[in-house]
Design a binder for these strands. Structure first.
Length: 821
DNA sequence: AAGTAAATTTTTTTT
DNA sequence: AAATTTACTT
């Protein structure tokens, strides 16, 4: 195959080294995907491995789809009997479980339902309520996080309870919810995302026959983005490679960005000890970016302590500097990005742009700005098609028809469209179901069959509604049965779920713009089903697909402008990248800054973002930003401070943070830290900052005024708590620190005094230093983050989030809070 | 029971 | 600021 000639020596090694365990450490832009796809093609075309013996695993459907496509293109001219399985971890597990879950003997059957995050949260909420626990403190999200973490550690609820026994009350409650949750899922024959992995691993551990089957089936296994695997995924791989060890994993520890989901970098770092015969190949030549971009990425990542030294290099020498822009507010930032895109589109229409942000909520401003300038864009993430209410409703009907024990699906649709079943009836139904430890579907049957209906206090109207409902689901069920034996196309059943249930009729009757839009979405769902009928999958696969596709899967590589989170951008590349919202608290995210481990993950995220760029990189941040509808001053991200100034070109209007940084650095090079004269006072890291320093009496008075205090009233202990004074007095004399520190706090105070609109000014005058965003210490709860401040004078109420205790509402006057940094 | 008004919460990142 | 949840009418 002439394609091999396009590979460099280590890439070629990685392709041809087909036997035994192989670790490919592939830096950003080093042609990783090419290597994997060509390797698969090589196995088939040159080594004559039957395609069905090959398994490639990815994390996202997007990656799997792309890989399928590229392998397909490489093997275009071959006549193949089968196709290699290229799948996500979760789809692979569904496939295995749909075949063999009954061997697990845990009561689950092949027709199990998959609960997505939404469904899971609903169950958790119901459990918490059921147990009479505090729903305010035990939010479904936090409980889910705890349970999911436990599951990913391999704990069931008993182990969790045992481990947590002597710990705080909250975790004891979580243990109870955990148990109730597991029971409910069992009753509903449902598995959540974690369960898909857990049950598969358990099944492989338990059943030798199953293990044997898949070991014989998949003789060559490839895993993409191996740095993102968690312990369960590792266990899965271990079982699947038990007999033969033709396992090739590809990844980059510097791009490990899913630690929050249990991913363990140790899997890739310890590969050689997990698979003792392993060979290791490093791909270090970057084909994507300019040297400047690589230098910028490297400047940031080298601040991480735990990392494997890697030296990416490129033949694409030089390149232009990274552009930098400081905006006054988020709208200004978006306007800047939009106008830069417009300008570049004028000169070369074909180029592609990505706007990358840390959180989905940042997309809005950019959407508006682009729309105003009539620039077409594509947005990945946020609301996905399958997350729309009407789509989920219809899917729920289908899920229910396939698995009547699925309480969550049932509750979703039992009164949609309205059948006259209100809260009272539904509460009664659920109560009855809990009493008899049965599913709601069974409970309905029992109530309707029981002539002596006094047990259930339901109105005759409600009973009739239930009868209708049962009838509808019954009919739908018949059709699904026909569909699974492939006598009836999937699209037929989908249409039935839309029409038979009266769902479409209700929307037609409403005849509003919104209702029509929904009807169109349902039309789209039918289209998707028609597409599906062309492939061999049945209704079941269609529904599974709907549960397992993520919003990142709708990336359109032909779009000129794509907006998405940095996470979603992993694996992609763009000629021009805008990395926006480079502000402290946004990126790195405020929930990560207190934990060095999480901060390092944020830094890797920055590394991923920057290395997406091929030719041109823009870095932007805003001086203020609205958070929860409240205008907040925002300081530049510490990551900006980690970039060498000579790599950056400032496009800001007027003086910017960067121009101050330049000034501050003009006398002393920050690349020469040894020139620093250490002394007790200056030992503490300090930051660069713009704006006023508090180095005279007037400025000090101003400072306190901004905080609503009189300088004379302030006692001695409060000043050091702020610790602004000594530092700022010596500011210009000292060498600037690489790692930014509290100087920015002063910029915030200064800039809010100078630039804050008057309504905000007023607010800050009446408050002291305990405002949203600061940290405080509480005698009992310890350190906490102030989220909200309400009221005035003696009635100031604060909402404070204390790690481990949740959110507390406190009266400032009595709470005895101390502000800390 | 259903619709409206008011109160409350929300934002990390994802299969 | 927006979306979701709860409280209050009819």
């Amino acid at each position: 195959m002439e394609i091999f000639e396009t590979l460099n020596p280590p890439q070629l090694e990685a392709v041809k080294n087909t036997e035994g365990p192989l670790l490919v450490l592939a830096g950003a832009g080093s042609g990783k995907t090419r290597v994997i796809t060509i390797r698969i093609a090589y196995l088939i075309a040159e080594k004559n491995i039957p395609p069905y013996n090959i398994l490639a695993v990815t994390f996202t459907n997007k990656a799997a789809g792309e890989m399928r496509e590229r392998v397909g293109a490489l093997l275009e001219n071959q006549k193949l009997q089968s196709a290699p399985l290229i799948s996500t971890f979760h789809s692979l597990c569904v496939r295995i479980l749909r075949a063999d879950i009954e061997h697990l003997d845990e009561g689950f059957t092949k027709t199990f339902t998959i609960y997505d995050t939404d469904d899971t949260l609903k169950v958790l909420k119901a459990c918490t309520k059921d147990l009479g626990l505090d729903e305010k403190q035990l939010t479904p999200r936090s409980v889910y996080a705890a349970i999911s973490a436990a599951k990913n550690r391999g704990e069931d609820y008993e182990m969790y309870a045992a481990r947590v026994e002597s710990a705080d009350e909250k975790r004891a409650s979580i243990a109870r919810i955990f148990r109730a949750y597991v029971e409910r899922l069992e009753n509903s024959n449902a598995l959540d995302f974690d369960d898909l992995l857990i049950k598969t691993v358990r099944l492989l551990r338990k059943s030798e026959a199953t293990r044997e089957k898949y070991n014989n089936r998949y003789k060559y296994i490839l895993v993409d983005e191996y740095q993102d695997t968690n312990s369960l995924q590792f266990a899965l791989i271990k079982f699947l490679t038990e007999k033969q060890q033709n396992i090739c994993v590809v990844g980059d520890d510097a791009q490990s960005i899913y630690g929050f989901r249990g991913a363990d970098v140790q899997n890739i770092l310890q590969f050689e000890s997990h698979f003792p015969q392993a060979q290791v190949i490093m791909l270090e030549q970057n084909y994507r970016s300019t040297q400047t971009i690589l230098d910028a990425a490297d400047a940031i990542i080298k601040n991480n302590i735990s990392r494997k030294e890697k030296k990416l290099w490129t033949k694409n020498s030089g390149g232009e500097k990274a552009f930098y822009f400081q905006a006054f507010d988020a709208e200004g930032e978006a306007r800047f990005v939009a106008s830069m895109i417009e300008k570049e589109q004028m000169s070369s229409a074909a180029t592609k742009f990505a706007i990358l942000y840390r959180t989905n909520s940042q997309s809005r401003q950019f959407e508006e700005a682009l729309r105003r300038m009539r620039i077409d864009y594509n947005i990945v993430g946020g609301f996905s098609f399958y997350e729309r209410a009407e789509v989920k409703d219809i899917i729920a009907y289908l899920k229910l028809a396939l698995n009547p024990f699925d309480d969550i699906a049932l509750l979703r649709v039992i009164n949609t469209p309205s059948r006259g079943l209100g809260k009272t009836s539904l509460d009664e139904l659920q109560f009855q179901a809990r009493q008899s430890d049965a599913s709601i579907w069974e409970t309905i049957a029992r109530i309707l069959n029981d002539a002596d209906s006094a047990v259930a206090r339901l109105t005759s109207r409600a009973r009739n509604a239930l009868k209708d409902f049962r009838e509808v689901i019954g009919q739908l069920h018949k059709k699904t049965a026909e569909s699974s034996s492939l006598e009836r196309p999937v699209s037929d059943v989908v249409v039935a779920a839309i029409e038979l249930t009266g769902y479409a009729n209700e929307l037609r009757l409403e005849n509003s713009d919104e209702a029509n839009a929904r009807l169109e979405n349902l039309e789209e769902l039918v289209n998707a089903a028609v597409e599906y009928d062309k492939s061999e999958g049945g209704l079941r696969d269609f529904i599974d697909h709907a549960a397992l596709v993520s919003d990142t899967d709708k990336y359109d590589r032909n779009a000129s402008v794509t907006m998405m989170t940095i996470h979603a951008a992993k694996g992609l590349e763009f000629p021009t990248v805008f990395l926006v919202g480079l502000e402290d608290g946004i990126f790195p995210h405020s929930r990560s800054v207190n934990d060095p481990k999480q901060l390092e993950e944020e830094r890797r995220l920055a590394y991923v973002a920057i290395t997406r760029a091929e030719k041109r990189l823009y870095l932007t941040h805003s001086m203020r930003r609205r958070i929860y509808g409240e205008e907040m001053a925002a300081e530049p991200s510490q990551f900006l401070n980690e970039l060498p100034l000579e790599l950056i070109e400032d496009l800001s209007q007027g003086p910017s943070w960067l121009s101050y940084a330049r000034e501050g650095n003009s006398q002393l090079s920050r690349s020469a830290p040894e020139m620093r004269t250490p002394s007790i006072q200056t030992e503490k890291p300090r930051k660069l900052y713009t704006g006023k320093t508090y180095n005279n009496a007037e400025a000090i008075a101003d400072f306190f005024k901004a905080r609503g205090l009189n300088a004379s009233k302030v006692n001695a202990t409060e000043i050091p708590a702020e610790n602004d004074f000594q530092e700022s007095k010596t500011e210009t004399a000292e060498e600037p620190e690489r790692r930014p520190s509290s100087g920015w706090e002063r910029l915030k105070a200064a800039s809010s005094r100078e630039k804050t609109p008057s309504h905000l000014e007023h607010k800050s005058e009446n408050s002291d230093s305990i405002v949203p965003g600061v940290h405080v210490r509480h005698l009992k709860y310890g350190r906490g983050l102030v989220l909200r401040r309400e009221g005035s004078g003696d009635n100031v109420k604060l909402t404070v989030s204390f790690p481990g205790f949740g959110q507390k509402k406190l009266i400032e006057k009595f709470a005895n809070l101390e502000r800390i940094t």
